[in-house]
Amino acid sequence: MSGPTNPPANGADEAGPFAFTKANAALAEEIVGRYPEDREASAVMPLLDLAQRQNGGWLPPPAVAYVADYLGMPHIRVYEVVTFYSMFNLKPVGRNQVKVCTTTPCWLCGSAEVLDACRETLGIDLDETSEDGEFTLTEVECIGACVNAPVIQINDDYYEDLDGARTAALLDLLKKGEKPKPGSQTGRQCSAPVKGLATLISSGKMKGREGD
């Protein structure tokens, strides 16, 4: 992976000016209000998220500058935050951001197959956006749902217990403009054991430890 690259010096002109919409401005004010006075900078991440959502999933330089000025922070300090977190995008992305977890637990459970299915179904490789602007495919580090591995995240939802076929089906639905049901794709309830309950099977009360 290549490192973060500087926005071009004239990026501001290309991307056009940025400002919060009326509704988002009200929301931003509320968010900043959650933090003590003189600690407004703490609101940097929620505000960047707000700006990113308003701007179709990515942050052009004027949006970064806008948030910095909004909070009275030097631009470089906000840029540091933006480049640190992979959830902030500095380049345009598709409407559906498909993030495939390939960290060890997911990989052990078959994330390679899931990733291949993504590539094939979407016709794009990692860090690419489909021509119609619908999908962006990225690889991410652990997103904290190992118990339902392998997992992919699409925008704000997790899709779990995947394999190649289930992934392809999921993406086909998205392609048709439908929204698949988030969560386990095998019908498992939350993170319950895959092979059915192994403990607390009887409805009776738990017995005390015998023999003491």
Binding site: G3, P4, N6, P7, A9, I76, E80, F84
Partner: peptide
């Protein structure tokens, strides 16, 4: 305040925001 540490992990760099 013009210099910062951007990126993370192996991608970390000392940088200015706009060069």
């Amino acid at each position: 305040e013009e210099l910062g540490l951007t990126g993370r992990g192996e991608d970390v760099e000392i940088d200015t925001y706009v060069e």
